[in-house]
Simulated scan of single mutants.
Amino acid sequence: MGKLVTEMLKGTLEGIVLAILSSRPAYGYEITAQLRDQGFTNIAEGTIYALLVRIEQRGLVDVEKVPSEKGPPRKVYSLNAQGREYLEEFWKTWSFLAERLEQLREGGKQP
C-alpha cells in the first residue's frame, strides 16, 4: 500500500497542509511531525518545505520569521484569507470525490 498512498498524497498534500495550518500557525518541522503523528510516516521534510514555498508563492499563507533558540530564524506559516478560500474549495472537491468513490465502491448505487 505504501507506493499507492504516496501517489495519492501527491494530489492532496497541499490541502492537508493547509488544513493543519487552519488550526494554528506552524513551521515546517512542526507540520512534518504532525503529519507523522497522524500516520503519514513516509513524508520527507524536504517535500513539506518545497510545498510550503509553493503555497507561499501562490499567496495562500502569511509568513513570519520568528527567532529560534538554535540557528537561524524559523519561518512560521499561517493561513490567510486567500488560503482559507482555497481550503474551503479543497474540502468541497474532496467531499465530491469521496462521495463518488464511495458510490463506485458500492457498485455504482446513487444515494
Rank of each mutant, 00 (worst) to 15 (best):
M1A: 11
K75R: 13
L21S: 05
S23Q: 06
N42T: 10
K92S: 01
R58L: 02
L21N: 02
E14Y: 06
N80G: 13
E88H: 03
Q110T: 11
E102S: 11
A81H: 09
A81Y: 08
R24E: 12
P67D: 05
R105L: 15
T41D: 03
Q38C: 14
V53A: 08
E69C: 06
I55W: 05
T93H: 09
L35I: 02
R36A: 06
P67A: 01
E7Q: 15
L13V: 06
F90A: 00
Y27M: 03
A81G: 13
G71M: 00
A50I: 10
E64V: 15
L9T: 14
A44V: 13
E106Q: 06
V76F: 08
G39Q: 08
T47P: 10
A33H: 08
V66M: 14
F90M: 11
Y29K: 04
R105F: 15
M8F: 02
Q82M: 10
T32E: 07
V5I: 14
I16R: 02
G39M: 01
K10H: 09
E14K: 15
E102P: 05
T47N: 05
K65C: 13
K70Q: 13
G15K: 03
E85L: 08
G71Q: 00
R84E: 08
N42D: 12
E30M: 05
Y86T: 09
L18G: 02
P72I: 09
Q34E: 12
N42S: 14
M8S: 02
L9G: 10
Y49L: 14
V53I: 07
G39P: 07
L60T: 01
L97C: 11
E102Q: 10
T6S: 14
L97R: 09
M1N: 04
L35P: 01
L97V: 13
S23W: 10
P67F: 01
L13K: 03
L60N: 05
T47A: 09
F40I: 07
R54M: 01
M1Q: 13
I48Y: 00
R36I: 11
K3H: 09
S22R: 12
L87A: 04
N80H: 12
L52C: 04
Q110V: 11
G71N: 02
L79G: 03
Q38Y: 14
I16A: 02
E102R: 12
L97E: 10
R24A: 15
